Computed example of a mutant assay.
Amino acid sequence: MDKYDVKKAHRQLYAPSAKEFAVVDVPEFRYLAVDGQGDPNTSAAYAQAIEALYGVAYTLKFASKRTLDRDFVVGPLEGLWRADDPAVFLSRDKQAWEWTMLISQPTWITEEMVRSAIDDVAKKKAPPAIDAVRLHTMTEGTSVQILHVGSYDDETPTLDRLHNQYLPEHGLAFNGDHHEIYLSDARRTPPAKLKTILRQPVKPA
């Protein structure tokens, strides 16, 4: 049985350079999603969102393999980050951040399968955020991205370059939420070795 892996199927989107910004075209993807706000390091809602997302993601994986004979690798955790003032990302004012945490899903995962997986997880574990999990479809289109290696709190110089140098120099402006893709497991990886894709949808200024 071939096992679908979003990182391999869309390698150009999940394996960017750490040296230079790259312009990519991001097609439609489907995700499990949970919305929230606040500091991800201290917010109980954030931890509960992650627990619920992974519970549903693995339930879907096993159900797909069992009922459809189609297996897949559970995708990396991803996050959309937004705020009324984008400057809070540079100042790291995390209490002002709003977020949507995501895990990508293969195209054959349906709304009905997601609802069934949510019901199964609710019956077995009942994580607090389970009712907040939803299937979300998103097309980011033209985006600029780069790989950041290091602590999440060390992203500021790269984001400053993106916001205040690269985008103005190339006549581009924001066209959606700041998007991060977490390629490393923060529980097992030293901060200095964390790998995170930083992506920003853009449009002509």
Rank of each mutant, 00 (worst) to 15 (best):
P86G: 04
T139H: 13
H178R: 15
D131S: 13
V56Q: 02
Y31H: 11
A15C: 12
V88L: 10
V74A: 11
G171C: 06
S64E: 14
V149E: 06
V26S: 02
L198H: 05
R30G: 05
I50C: 06
S184L: 07
Y182M: 09
H170E: 04
M113N: 06
H179M: 06
T158Q: 07
S184C: 07
Y46T: 00
E155S: 10
Q105W: 00
Q37H: 14
V6W: 02
Y166K: 04
I197M: 08
D177R: 10
V56F: 02
H179W: 13
P190F: 02
Y54H: 11
Q12H: 14
S91G: 07
A33M: 09
L135A: 07
D120N: 11
P106R: 02
Q165M: 04
T196E: 11
M1C: 06
V56K: 07
E98P: 00
E155P: 09
R82P: 01
D131Y: 03
P86I: 15
K203S: 11
F72E: 09
A96P: 01
A132D: 15
V56P: 00
A18D: 15
D35V: 04
K19V: 15
A47C: 11
T42P: 04
L172C: 07
H179V: 11
L68S: 12
K193C: 04
A96N: 11
K123I: 08
M113Y: 09
S64R: 06
E111V: 08
R199V: 08
P190A: 09
D177N: 15
L90V: 13
E78G: 10
R161K: 12
Q145D: 07
Y152I: 07
A192T: 10
V23I: 12
R161C: 04
L80K: 08
K7N: 10
T139A: 12
H179K: 06
R187H: 12
D177M: 10
Q95H: 09
L32S: 01
R134H: 14
Q95R: 13
R66V: 04
R187K: 11
S104K: 00
E28T: 14
Q200T: 10
V23Q: 13
